[in-house]
Amino acid sequence: MTTITDNAIATPRRAVRDEMIALAVMTALLAVVPLTGVYPFFVMQGLCFALLACAFNLLIGYGGLLSFGHAMFLGTAGYVTAHALKVWGLPPELGIVLGTLAAASLGVLTGLVAIRRQGIYFAMITLALSQLLYFVYLQTPFTHGEDGIQGIPQGHLFGFINLANPNTLYYVILAGFLLGFLVIYRAINSPFGEVLKAIRENEPRAVSLGYKTDHYKLLAYILSATLAGFAGSLKVFVAQNASLTDVHWTMSGEIVLMTLVGGLGTIYGPVVGAFVIIAMQQYLAGFGQWVTVIQGVIFVVCVLTFRRGVIGEIAHYFKRSL
C-alpha cells in the first residue's frame, strides 16, 4: 500500500540543522508581529489554528491516522475553559488546564473506540463521534446551544499578566503555541515518533517486531487530542466566545484542509497551511458561501496535483526536511 506522505530524503544531522534554522526564523517572524502593525487578532487566531493543525498532523503525518473529528477537541476544550472562566470565575491558567484535561479525557474515551479500526473506517468513526458530541453540546444547557458562551473575561494570567492587553495576550498565545509546537517536535523525533512512523509504513511488520501498535496509536491519538484541546483553550482568550461552530464537522474539514495545503507529514506545513486558510477566510469573508466552494476547490486541486503541500514541495525541491 502506498503511504499518504511523501517525505523528502535528508540525512538526520542536516535535517535537524535545517529544522532548527526554520524554527528560529519562524519564532523571530512571529515575535516581531506586534511591531509591524499587522492585525494581531488575525495572527493570534492563526497561531491557535496552527497548533491545532500541527496536533492533527501528528496523527496523520506520522501515525497515518486521518481524524475527521478533531473539531471535537477544539470545541470541548473551548467550552470547558469558557465555562470555567465565566461561570466558575477561575483564573486563566486553571481554565486552560481544565480545558486541556477535558480534551485529553475525551481523547482517551474516543481513542479507545476509534483505534479499533484503521484507514477509512478510522476517519468515518472519528467523524461520527464528533457529530455525536455536536448533538450533545447542542442540547446540554451549559453550552447555551446556538448562542454559545459569549463575553468571556480574559483575566490575569498567574494573577499579574493582563490578558485584556492585546500585545500581552499576543505573546502569551505565541508562548503557548511554541510550547505545543516543541512538544510535537520532540514527540516526532523521539523513539516514540520513530515507532509511529514504522506503524504508518508497515503495521504488520511493526507488530511482528514486538511493538504493541495499538498502544502507540492510542498514545499518539491522546497526545494529539490534548494539544488540539490546548489550542482550543487558548483560542477562547482570543475569540472570547465558545460556540457550536468549533465542534461542527466543517471545522474538522478545515483542519484537514490546513494540513493538506501546508503539507501532510511536514513539521512546518500545518503552520503555513493554517495561516493560508485563515487569511483566505478573512479576505473572502464577503463572498458568502463561495468560501465553501473555494475550500472545496483547494481540496480537489491539492489532492490531484499538489499532494506534498506548500512546505512539502519546498522541502522536496531543496531535498531538505522541514
Binding site: M1, G253, L260, Q289, G296, F299, V300
Partner: peptide, 18 residues
Amino acid sequence: DHLYGLLLTFGLGLIIQG
C-alpha cells in the same frame, strides 16, 4: 492511499453544496 479518495470527494461535496 484510500485516504486521498476521501479528501478528494470531501472537496467535491463542499463544491457542490456551496
